[in-house]
Nucleic acid binder design. Structure first.
Lengths: 196, 196
DNA sequence: TTTATTTCTTACCATTTGGTAAATAGATGG
DNA sequence: CCATCTATTTACCAAATGGTAAGAAATAAA
């Protein structure tokens, strides 16, 4: 896979959401870079302003917070190619309270946020694209909150397994547990109940 | 209060997020209408495509879903002047699964979504404004989900009381309960524990 | 390979929350 | 004002989940 192969995955993703002019494509091709990371690598740190906007081409990443109690809470795991960044500092450059970490080896396409700003101003279709991506994120988050409210821990886990079976193999149990709002012990018990 | 008074509240809100040209202001003034509703009125219905984008000038509203089990889940309550609509059909006109209902008498400023589309194309600052609003919604939702994961029912209620004391007087307990993912009975018990 | 470190599982008990049902309080409409 | 309906509170018990601690398993390091 060379640079163009990676970018084609990137462009395919964008195209599915909102068709893109050749001009905008070229803009992205100029501004974004391909970057590879080994597994268990911290890519962006909590307590700092996150510099990059990341698109995951391949691999699994997670976002997590370190609570005052010392407990880690995984807030998101990417499930397929797509953007995966912390939004706390998307337009306003605020200090993020989340870490971005690779769970497996991964390939990212990324650009500095200051460059993204330029892109959004220059590219004609890109602002509309961003709006659509934001909207999708809002819907996903809403569904996520609804599940936390109306499903039991076991139901949430079963839904997770059903939706993202490929993650079960590759993601440590404790990450999935905190993502679903369960203790690792409880999830281990739930997992056992399901097998029986 | 006449039409202009209401619109000034509307413009103030927008201005705080993103300064607005006079041209864009005039556009909004032409397209949006002021509408009043009595308490306990259904403003948009689940199962239909929501036609309007609503800005709450005054009053309290909620969004809620009716589950297959017959249980109502309140998914959001507005806490101050601001946009308050279902995003499921923001750009793509999809059937919504949420109802929008007034809890108290209220004043809305609203426009048809097809007109909003025109506005976003014509107004220079409005698309940027929408992006910022979306971003804020994403952050709020993320915090909301995090609270559901890391706080107990009692802690969630205490936080709610602290953040929105004015709502406690005016919003039925059962709405707050389902918003926080608790049964009304549990919330009643929690409330009692707090008083003691 | 062997050792060390981390992760997962299991068991135990405490606590929280849910579910059912009934009593009380409050609101609404005639 | 009364009658009716709805919302809230309370009590009881069952179920789900959390917390501590220890052991087993897997992974990483030497």
């Amino acid at each position: 896979m060379d640079r163009l192969d990676y970018f084609n995955i990137f462009f395919d993703f964008i195209h599915k959401v909102n068709p893109m002019t050749e001009y905008d494509k070229q803009l992205c091709y100029d501004y974004f870079e391909v970057k590879k990371f080994a597994k268990n690598t911290t890519i962006e740190k909590a307590g700092k302003v996150h510099l990059y906007e990341n698109f995951v081409v391949s691999g699994i990443l997670r976002k997590y917070r370190l609570e005052e109690t010392g407990i880690e809470i995984t807030t998101a795991i990417n499930t397929k190619p797509g953007f995966f960044s912390c939004f706390s500092s998307y337009t306003d450059r605020e200090i993020s309270n989340e870490n971005l970490e690779s769970i497996t080896n991964c390939v990212l396409i990324r650009a500095k946020r200051e460059d993204i700003d330029l892109l959004l101003k220059q590219g004609k279709t890109l602002q509309q694209f961003t709006l659509l991506v934001f909207q999708k994120i809002i819907e996903e988050q809403k569904q996520n909150a609804l599940d936390l409210v109306k499903l039991t821990a076991k139901e949430r886990y079963l839904k997770f397994v059903y939706q993202y079976p490929q993650l079960i193999q590759n993601v440590p149990l404790q990450y999935i547990a905190s993502l679903l709002g369960i203790t690792p012990q409880s999830l281990s018990r739930i997992r056992k109940e399901i097998i029986e």
